[in-house]
């Protein structure tokens, strides 16, 4: 189970129109049930990588294999199914401002077509996990930055995704909440969810035992902390 291939990026090239390469011949293998930190300085391409994986951005050259399917083919037909198995925490949250915390968190479940009972149950559980129980009926635009971030995290995990992609999920949180969120991620990981956290905060990996850390350097991915052989490509 642990060594099942989830995402395989092979010699990936990516550039935005009018800019230098963001990725140049970058390869990365992500296995199922990994807890992976993607480190990199600002502007190194962490967000870009998450966008590529979630099908929001195209790539120029190279190959991406997702669950044994070529990503370009997958994108043409079943992108929405792949996206349903993802939980994404955006760097800028991307919540629906005019709707309540509860409505925002319930969205993935509505899209999956869950029953009202199940939605209520799961949203309640998630609100507890991200410690927003007392804010469930507050409209999102009135929340603080940290609270919005936690709503975004709630929305990303409520449907038990296969892979959680979190872009700077602790960027707006104080130490106490950062610790809570990392613990939450760790619990989710223990329940079998693969996790990829993009961050520039080098201290985060220390808090998670047994995680893998990959750094974006010179437009490539480099493993920085040695991990058992079976987990690397």
């Amino acid at each position: 189970m642990e060594d099942e291939l989830l995402i395989f990026c092979d010699h990936l090239f990516k550039k935005y129109p009018g800019t230098d390469w963001v990725f140049k011949d970058a390869s990365l293998t992500i296995f199922r049930n990994q807890f992976l930190f993607l480190l990199g300085s600002s502007g190194s391409g962490k967000t870009t990588f998450i966008k590529i994986i979630s099908g929001q951005e195209d790539y120029d050259r190279g190959k991406i294999i997702i669950q044994n399917n070529d990503f370009r083919k997958l994108k043409r037909k079943n992108l929405h199914l792949w996206r349903r198995s993802l939980g994404i925490v955006f760097q800028d949250f991307r919540l629906l401002w005019k709707q309540t915390v509860k409505e925002n968190i319930a969205l993935p479940l509505i899209i999956l077509g869950c029953s009202k009972n199940e939605i209520d149950m799961r949203v309640k559980a998630v609100l507890k996990l991200v410690q927003l129980e007392d804010k469930e009926d507050v409209v999102c635009k009135y929340l603080s930055g940290g609270e919005q971030q936690r709503v975004a995290i709630g929305r990303a995990i409520v449907h038990s995704p296969v892979l959680l992609l979190a872009d700077e999920p602790t960027g707006n949180l104080d130490d106490k909440h950062t610790k809570n969120i990392l613990e939450l991620f760790y619990t989710l990981h223990a329940r079998g969810i693969s996790i990829l956290i993009a961050t520039h905060d080098k201290r985060l990996p220390i808090a998670i035992p047994d995680c893998r850390t990959v750094m974006i350097k010179d437009k490539r991915f480099i493993d920085v902390i040695p991990v058992p052989k079976s987990r690397t490509s």
Binding site: L81, W82, R83, R84, R94, L107, P108, I111
Partner: peptide
């Protein structure tokens, strides 16, 4: 946009 990202058909 969000529905699209969350995998809405």
């Amino acid at each position: 946009y969000i529905f699209d990202i969350l995998g809405a058909s």
